[in-house]
């Protein structure tokens, strides 16, 4: 069979998928770019061409800047916490103890829950009237009276970050746990004989084996955190006082609540651009981590 025929056949086999992808991703993308240069509303007329107006207005608006800051804060804090807690949990679950298998299986539960379920669950925990968090904190004497954790701008973002961490640290823990299985026993034994304590052993012996997989987890989690929408939408809808309004929430509000399809589209493209830059940057880091581990 000739090479040309193989190539043709490969393209033929991929063709249906390519058509579907172009239809559901390519076309909307191109149309979003077109929309972003117009003043189109969500319904009604097609809108007029306004050049870079949408972009300039948006970049200058305090709404965008605050949303960008909220998103960055959410992403950095939640991903950092998830990485640290995830690695610690994995190190614990890698020890020999009774009931380890059950705990390992339970670990996956928060991550397996749909985000909406998780968000609803945490809304109940944070409930200002009958929430478990208020009950626990008042009963152990840390709190005088019940508070509205999601209703106060000072605590809403932290409450959201905790909920997001609870859901997503298991992913990091699972990836780490898998990577830990790949650390050769001889190497940990050698470090014991060499006299390395727990910290030195982690730093010099185990961490190099975790670097690559952890980098992948970091990339996945950062990109997801930057695009975060559902957990916030269910828990706070961007409030109170827009304190938890991230970029994706802003896009949604702009396009669907305020029905400004044109500026919504420009905002969506900026978010896409930020995430793409992050993905490329991280991609380079991953390759470097993989290179140094080999």
């Amino acid at each position: 069979m000739s090479g040309t025929w193989m190539t043709t056949r490969a393209w033929l086999l991929m063709l249906p998928l390519l058509i579907i992808m172009l239809a559901v991703i390519g076309w909307p993308m191109i149309d979003t770019v077109r929309l972003s240069f117009t003043d189109a509303k969500l319904v009604g007329a097609a809108g007029n061409f306004v050049g870079f107006d949408n972009y300039l207005k948006m970049l200058g608006s305090s709404n965008f800047q605050r949303a960008l800051w909220a998103t960055t804060w959410f992403a950095v804090v939640s991903v950092t916490a998830e990485m640290v807690i995830g690695v610690l949990a994995a190190l614990l679950l890698n020890q020999q103890f009774y009931g380890r298998t059950v705990l390992r299986a339970l670990l996956i539960l928060p991550w397996a829950l749909p985000t909406v379920v998780n968000a609803t669950l945490w809304r109940l925990i944070y409930n200002p009237e009958y929430g478990a968090l208020n009950a626990v904190l008042t009963q152990i004497g840390l709190l005088d009276s019940y508070r509205s954790w999601l209703g106060e701008p000072g605590t809403a973002m932290t409450a959201l970050i905790i909920a997001d961490c609870w859901k997503n640290f298991p992913l990091v823990a699972l990836i780490t746990l898998a990577a830990l299985q790949a650390v050769p026993r001889d190497i940990t034994s050698a470090s014991l004989v060499d006299g390395a304590g727990s910290f030195a052993r982690f730093r010099f012996v185990i961490l190099p084996y975790l670097a690559g997989p952890l980098m992948v987890a970091l990339v996945l989690r950062t990109i997801e955190a930057f695009k975060v929408f559902d957990i916030i939408w269910v828990m706070t809808r961007g409030g109170p006082a827009n304190s938890t309004r991230t970029l994706s929430i802003l896009v949604y509000q702009e396009a669907f609540s305020f029905q400004r399809a044109g500026s919504g589209a420009s905002l969506a493209l900026v978010v896409t651009l930020i995430v793409t830059v992050l993905a490329i940057g991280y991609g380079m880091l991953v390759r470097r981590a993989a290179g140094s581990a080999a």
């Binding site: 050769p184 001889d186 190497i187 034994s189 050698a190 470090s191 014991l192 004989v193 060499d194 006299g195 390395a196 010099f204 012996v205 190099p208 084996y209 140094s292 581990a293």
Partner: peptide, 21 residues
């Protein structure tokens, strides 16, 4: 007694070198 306090040194079949050092 902990391995490090036994005054022994060990060479492993897989060499067990620390790859990043």
């Amino acid at each position: 007694v902990h391995p490090k306090d036994r005054d022994i040194a060990m060479v492993f079949q897989s060499y067990a070198l620390y790859p990043n050092l």
